[in-house]
């Protein structure tokens, strides 16, 4: 292919990108990247099929904060944690905690669902603001690596995602905190 033909191809591609951008721009009326939705909706979705959902707000004691901090190697500043317990036929479907954290510059909200035995049942990213290439951490195939982990698991082995280093660290720390809090509060019953 001659140079002029290649140049022509690039020009056409460039113009095509412009046209496509305009078309996509017209679609932007619905272009809220990660639409906000209520906490209640998220909880109900997690416990789809539940007879009832009980919100249990735990006031963390100094001992509990210290115990969670030791398990997570984090400084725990939370004074309370709210666990949502989905119930069906009198049986607990799981214990869910929702958190909003600063992820690099923007907000990330996620929900961690624990099994009664202290293993992670499920993790979902609810909102992920910002434009960097960190959307990979929203995919089920990436998030499912948390399933089955507990407070003693090796969280450093969580897979990195290129361009989402901060997001990966943020959500990994969050899951570890919830798993450790569940262990301290419900299994070890630290007062």
């Amino acid at each position: 292919m001659k140079t002029e033909n290649i140049k022509q191809t690039v020009r056409i591609l460039w113009q095509g990108l412009g046209v496509a951008a305009m078309v996509l721009g017209l679609m932007a009326g619905n272009a809220s990247a990660q639409g906000a939705f209520s906490k209640e909706d998220a909880i109900k979705k997690v416990f789809s099929g539940a007879d009832k959902i009980v919100k249990k707000r735990i006031r963390l004691t100094t001992s509990q904060r210290a115990a969670i901090g030791k398990l997570t190697t984090q400084t725990i500043r939370d004074k309370t944690m709210s666990f949502y317990i989905g119930k069906k036929g009198g049986q607990a479907m799981g214990y869910a905690v929702m958190e909003a954290v600063k992820n690099r510059s923007w907000t990330m909200r996620y929900i961690v669902v624990m099994n009664e035995d202290g293993t992670v049942q499920n993790v979902e990213v609810l909102d992920l603001e910002g434009p960097r290439a960190n959307w990979g951490i929203q995919s089920d195939s990436w998030l499912q690596q948390f399933s089955g982990m507990n407070a003693d698991s090796d969280f450093q082995s969580v897979s990195a995602v290129n361009g989402a280093f901060v997001s990966v660290r943020t959500i990994t720390a969050g899951v570890r905190k919830v798993a450790s809090a569940y262990r301290v509060i419900f299994l070890d019953k630290v007062k």
Partner: peptide, 20 residues
């Protein structure tokens, strides 16, 4: 399918009870 939680949200009309 792209994971977009916002699109998946909704759910049944379940009462959330606060227990303290």
């Amino acid at each position: 399918p792209v994971t977009s939680w916002a699109q998946k949200s909704g759910g049944d009309d379940i009462l959330i009870i606060e227990e303290d």
